[in-house]
Computed example of a mutant assay.
Amino acid sequence: MLKMFGLKKCTTCQKAMGYLDQKKKAYNFSDVREDPISKDQVAKWSKALGGWEKMINRAGYTWRGLPKGETENLTEAKAVTLAVKNPSLIRRPLIEHRDGSVTVGFSDKVKGFIG
């Protein structure tokens, strides 16, 4: 079963859930604001994606609202801590696939991966 993480009110997450429902693909959705995510979980996602830069949305409202001191000179560890503290920084939806891989967003490439 796919595991999807995001925000209930996120339109991209809603589109992804609608697509999965239409394709009759089983998934479990977790709202990252309501269901706390752990540091280990976020670190695992970051590693699976090839680094925090692919996981964190640096163009979003949450990122722009953070003090410069929190967003400058980020290391992997600092980025993971920041994402746990501010889960809406994580690109949405984040999907854990059956094979253990992780994707973010809901592009045609991700749709192809899901089937």
Rank of each mutant, 00 (worst) to 15 (best):
M55P: 09
W63E: 10
Y27Q: 08
F106N: 05
S46R: 05
G18Y: 02
G60D: 08
R58F: 01
E70F: 00
K44Q: 07
G115R: 11
G69C: 03
K44C: 02
E70I: 02
I56V: 14
S46M: 04
G6M: 11
K15Y: 01
E34R: 12
K109R: 13
G60A: 07
L20S: 03
A26G: 12
R64G: 07
D35W: 05
E72Y: 04
I90F: 07
K85W: 03
G105C: 04
Q41A: 05
G69A: 14
D31G: 13
F5A: 13
L7G: 06
D35V: 15
Q14D: 02
S101E: 08
G115L: 03
S30Q: 14
G18P: 01
V80Q: 10
Q14W: 01
T103R: 02
I56F: 03
I114R: 10
K68V: 09
V104N: 01
T62V: 14
I114F: 15
L20N: 00
K78G: 09
F29V: 10
V42T: 02
K44G: 06
Y19A: 00
K25R: 15
K85P: 06
G115V: 03
Y61H: 11
L82C: 00
K111P: 04
K68W: 00
R64D: 04
L74F: 05
S46D: 04
D99P: 09
Y61P: 04
V42G: 06
C13L: 03
T81W: 00
G51P: 10
K78T: 13
K111T: 04
I90P: 10
G69L: 09
F5C: 11
M55W: 10
I90E: 06
Y27F: 14
K23P: 02
V42Q: 09
F29K: 09
V80N: 12
G112R: 15
E34L: 15
T103V: 00
K68Q: 10
A83F: 04
A16W: 09
K68S: 13
N57I: 05
V84D: 07
T62G: 05
G112S: 14
K8P: 00
V80K: 10
K24D: 10
G112K: 15
G100T: 09
G6Q: 11
T11Q: 00
L2I: 15
F5Y: 15
K9D: 04
G60L: 05
M4E: 12
S30W: 11
R33W: 06
E70V: 04
K15R: 12
K39E: 15
G51Q: 12
W45M: 09
A43Y: 01
G65C: 02
R64C: 00
K109P: 01
Y61L: 14
A43E: 09
F29L: 06
D40I: 00
L94A: 15
I95P: 03
L66I: 05
S38C: 07
D40S: 13
R33V: 12
F29C: 10
D99C: 07
E72R: 12
E34G: 02
A79S: 13
P93H: 13
H97T: 03
K15W: 02
V80Y: 08
K47I: 10
T75N: 10
N86E: 14
K44N: 07
L7Q: 06
L2M: 13
M1R: 14
K25P: 00
